[in-house]
């Protein structure tokens, strides 16, 4: 838990112009009771691996980095970036004071029903090699499992085209 903490301390969620800070739990623990309880039960796994020293050297950490990131991306994508939206919302954004490219891409995200994590991977932690491909894989497996559930609703093609991977 030291490596990821150190990385987070280099980011805008730790130090920024407005002096508002988002701490670990703001992004990693849901606010609603039922999801929070589920997260706390699942956290037993984290405690276990912390005690067992699964990621207690930087080599071990790097070896697992992509896998751990993918697990969180999957959660974020499945919940429409729920924890991001505890603070951030498209409705609160003034596109006119954003950088042009940010405003354009946020407008596109609204139009195409995208979610925060579709673009903002690695916002608080370093990214492993091949992260874009891995995120793509996460999106595809999620969409497939949703199709099997029959709920559908995720436009994989538009996300694919946005990420620059040709739709097949």
């Amino acid at each position: 838990m030291e490596t990821n903490l150190g990385e987070y301390r280099q980011t805008v969620h730790y130090n920024n112009h407005s002096g508002v800070r988002a701490i670990c739990s703001d992004c990693h623990v849901p606010h609603e009771w039922q999801y929070k309880m589920k997260a706390k039960v699942m956290a037993v796994k984290d405690v276990y691996h912390e005690v067992m020293g699964t990621i207690n050297t930087s080599e071990k950490y790097e070896h697992r980095r992509l896998e751990m990131a993918a697990a969180v991306w999957k959660k974020m994508k499945a919940t429409d970036s729920r924890e991001c939206r505890n603070c951030h919302a498209f409705e609160y954004m003034d596109f006119t004071i954003q950088e042009t490219r940010a405003a354009q891409n946020h407008q596109r995200a609204v139009d195409e029903n995208m979610t925060c994590i579709d673009c903002h991977q690695g916002i608080a932690h370093d990214l492993a090699p091949g992260y874009l491909e891995e995120y793509q894989h996460v999106v595809e497996t999620l969409a497939q499992s949703k199709l099997q559930d029959g709920s559908g609703g995720v436009d994989v093609a538009s996300i694919k085209s946005y990420l620059g991977i040709s739709a097949d």
Binding site: V12, D126, S161, G164
Partner: peptide, 25 residues
């Protein structure tokens, strides 16, 4: 906030030829 190190180059997520067209970069 962009990571450019041995592992990852985040500039490429828009400026690489595979992504530039879609990202308008």
């Amino acid at each position: 906030q962009y990571q450019i190190d041995l592992r990852t180059n985040q500039c490429l997520s828009c400026h690489d030829w595979t992504n530039a067209g879609d990202r308008g970069a």
